[in-house]
Amino acid sequence: MRFALSAEQRQFAESLTGLLSAADVATVARRWAGGEHEPGLKLWRRLAEVGVTALAVPEHRDGLGAGAVELVVAFERLGYHGVPGPWTDTAAALPALLDDELLAGVAAGETLASLRWDPHVPHALDADVADTRIAVDGTDLRVFTPGRSLSGVDGSRRLFEAVPGDVIASCPDPGRAFDQAALATAAQLLGAGRWLLDRSVDYARQRVQYGRTIGEFQAVKHLLADVATRLELAGPLVYGAAVALDAGGDVPRDVSAARVAAADAAYLAARTGLQVHGAIGYTAEHPLGLWLAKVRALTGTWGTQAFHRSRVLTALRAGSVR
């Protein structure tokens, strides 16, 4: 057993960190929220160049056919940096939903997909910019037409009503696609939680009140220590679920456990981050609110916490305890 990232996987994460740290993603996300897609699409293509969109695409569709662990590495970085766009739909779900030549476009970073998936994803993400729009209806895959745009807590998640049309294909077992999307969401939540913790620690080290940095106060330290603990323990669940997807295991149980823990930890990081920042964190001028909103939005999509807890319980009731 070696339960740690390989040198290549660590290197991949570091290269994404380097690329995204230099990309001023907060500005890209704000412009994306305003309907100005070009900077975000440019970033999409740069990430495609280093392989992010090709990870889950099979090799015979010009993809990398990489494992779920690599997918988690990438989505954790996307979540950390708050990258906008229909990443989960396009790079995590779609490649497992159908085996079609359009996946070559996904791998190349030219095709963006938006999915509706009742009842978990009733609103289609970035359906205006996506060129592939699919509503999953049991085992039927239908095209959908974007309807009214909806205003959400995270402005960089541009949501649309989706009006399903004709059946274009069928997917006998959409479970894998759903689990990859739920796991990618968990990874983004883990990354977003880590960003919130890092920025809160930075802030607590420099903000001075009562003549000392607020990070000296135990009341502040203990809040942040609890966040660190929850994130540290959520991470292995997320990677453990990726191993289950790659090598076999109780996939629904492990993906849902990861999603529950990652969302709870990220939400604690968001609430704590806001409290540590105080009023500045409550402004639209400060980036904290972008991540706070993203965490709240991701917590409800690709399965609610209640849905994922119920999937864990279903597995446990059936005796899948060890």
Binding site: F3, L237, L316
Partner: peptide
């Protein structure tokens, strides 16, 4: 029921976290 799920998830998290620690210590 949700708290039962969370207890099991917590125990599993600690198991996997420990496997990670064991890997690091072994290296």
């Amino acid at each position: 029921a949700g708290r039962v799920a969370d207890a099991w998830i917590g125990a599993r998290a600690y198991q996997l976290y420990t496997y990670g620690t064991v890997t690091r210590l072994a290296e």
